[in-house]
């Protein structure tokens, strides 16, 4: 049985105390010390995307050129097939209506937010969302919307509109949302 030698212990002992003190003094201040308790994640009841109605049947009280006008009477979201960014036939009508509306209200600026479902890896899905946002941007500019009024962003799979994990949820979460960021009435 051998025992440690005290002298050796002492030298290195000081060395460690010094490093640990230094580390403590320079350590970033944690914002909160304790990890949060686990949060139960029950699937939420689903609100389907609002139906698209022709302008003629617009309910009274909606101000033309407003956010509500755009969402209710035009439709602010289009959907994509799995791993695809091409504009579907059912999206072309909505986007054409978006372009017409935007051309009627030239002060409005928009941000196109591309989204992906959870069936892909995080970074790839950012890129996929960017591609979807760009596809919508290209469609709108082809219909005469000035590109300087449009910005694009991808939220990847980070902001699902349907928190579920099934085909319906994935289909809703593969979308591009047109947000009015300025100029709406």
């Amino acid at each position: 049985m051998s025992i440690k030698t005290k002298t050796v212990v002492k030298t290195a002992l000081v060395a460690f105390v010094l490093t640990s003190v230094a580390a403590c003094s320079e350590k970033p201040k944690p914002v909160v010390e304790a990890p949060p308790p686990p949060v139960a994640q029950a699937p939420q009841p689903q609100t389907p995307p609002p139906p698209v109605r022709p302008v003629e049947t617009a309910p009274a009280g909606i101000v033309p050129g407003s956010q509500q006008d755009f969402v209710v009477n035009v439709g602010d979201r289009v959907y994509f097939d799995t791993d695809q960014s091409s504009i579907r036939t059912d999206a072309q009508g909505i986007l054409s209506a978006q372009a017409a509306w935007l051309n009627r209200y030239p002060a409005v600026r928009i941000r196109i937010e591309g989204n992906a479902d959870e069936r892909g890896t995080r970074e790839y899905n950012f890129a996929l969302g960017a591609r979807r946002a760009e596809a919508v941007s290209e469609f709108l500019t082809s219909k005469g919307v000035d590109p300087s009024r449009i910005s694009t962003i991808s939220y990847g799979k980070e902001q699902p509109i349907n928190p579920g994990s099934d085909e319906d949820a994935w289909a809703q979460n593969r979308n591009a949302h047109t947000a009015l960021v300025a100029g709406a009435k």
Partner: peptide
């Protein structure tokens, strides 16, 4: 570190 509901997750570096 993730907290909050899906779709509105708070995501902090930890």
């Amino acid at each position: 570190a993730e907290s909050g509901k899906r779709g509105a997750r708070v995501k902090r570096l930890a």
